[in-house]
Design a protein around this nucleic acid. Structure first.
Lengths: 219, 219
DNA sequence: CGCTATCTGATAGCAGGACTATCTAAGATG
DNA sequence: CATCTTAGATAGTCCTGCTATCAGATAGCG
């Protein structure tokens, strides 16, 4: 197909497609003459993946580039791909609040308590510490009361994720599954958390009142 | 305190503080003369909250403004605050991929299956549908195999969150707790999911090999 | 009282990110 | 052959989140 058709098939404007090619997100078309090129289904899929990572996963162009580098790398063990994907999508903490030492200690304690086999050089460790330190700095240090519930929930989710990826283990798109599952899975998880909040809130604060007004205030 | 002290206490540059005041995120100082103003601990807390929402929660200035509007509104039932916070932090889906009808159906089915009491006008419903449609469009429609595990995990998380908020029910900062727990809780949850991934991956793919090399590739 | 540091409020400028517009020369296609 | 589309290149646009500069005024100290 030509670039115009690719554009129509994906809903991405032609100049934007050219931009992605320039930025190294999308391979160039196969030139049939000095100023004509052909694109195929691989380009369609790739373009959808790019937009998914950006629009749903919230990744920047440069993060997408790194993630796709992992996708394109020769097949590596899931373990390594996971690490590469995590590195690419975990922006180095833009800011380090006060109380990071204490927060790092808390994180180490959680990891120890759960028996998680993770190195402390994992970017998510630092990200978690930043988040906990921020809670603390805002005066909500008691949030750590719930981290064990979070941890248990995450263990369950991770099991499901790995099983899902494992089902694709023999398939070509294994690496892509890891990346997509990691990035888009976040979006699914946070959206569902919102829904579960609303449900739990309805049960807790509306139960028995028969109306929409709650129990903890009079508005 | 004066603005310079406020700046030093929070690590936020003076012009940035002024910018936040202009943007309506931070109340102005109390003027002691036409060109002198005083700030207090409330400003320190507020500023930390703003930076937490932006740096950790990834909110934009305008999203922070909306969230803070909810925080500042007269005390309303948790239910309503939750809705307001969710509205503010759930950006209207920038893009709607193909297959949204099917995805909306899936979401409705999930909600029905879980017995969740949520209206279908909830922005998270649409966000979830967009995420699922994106999975489908990329060729990973089988992701729905895991959504029930996600749902169960989220129910657990939501219970813990509500209990935590409930413990602050009599405290002044209830609304803030809801907002902070929603926004920063996402960061905690996704960071922990990463850690749980690494752990699960280690158990699944490294078990018995005694080394860092994995089982599913030779790289 | 004078001096320097600091402040308020206002306006303008800037850097980065993600496109978007325009242009030239050249195929494509009916 | 006339019209449409394309490749490749360069420049421009829009939005965000600050940052710089300035004028006039105040704080606080010796």
């Amino acid at each position: 197909m030509r670039i115009g058709e690719l554009s129509r098939a994906t809903g991405v404007a032609v100049p934007t497609i050219k931009y992605y090619v320039r930025e190294g997100l999308l391979p160039a078309g196969r030139l049939t003459s000095p100023n004509q090129a052909r694109y195929d289904d691989g380009h369609v899929r790739r373009l959808r993946l790019i937009r998914g990572l950006m629009d749903v996963g919230g990744l920047s162009v440069s993060a997408v580039r790194e993630v796709l580098a992992a996708v394109d790398s020769p097949r590596e063990p899931v373990h390594k791909v996971l690490g590469a994907a995590q590195l690419a999508i975990t922006p180095p903490p833009a800011v380090t609040p006060d109380g990071m030492e204490a927060a790092r200690g808390k994180v180490a304690e959680i990891i120890r308590r759960r028996g998680w086999r993770v190195g402390d050089d994992n970017p998510a460790v630092e990200a978690l510490a930043v988040a906990l330190a921020t809670f603390e700095g805002i005066g909500h240090g008691d949030f750590e009361e719930v981290v064990d519930d979070y941890a248990a929930a995450c263990e369950r989710v991770a099991e499901a994720d790995l099983a899902w990826v494992g089902r694709n283990a023999e398939v070509d798109g294994l690496v892509e599954s890891v990346v997509v599952g990691t990035v888009l899975g976040d979006a699914v998880l946070t959206a569902m958390r919102r829904l579960a909040h609303v449900d739990a809130s309805a049960r807790r604060y509306e139960q028995g009142t028969g109306g929409p007004a709650g129990a903890s205030g009079t508005a």
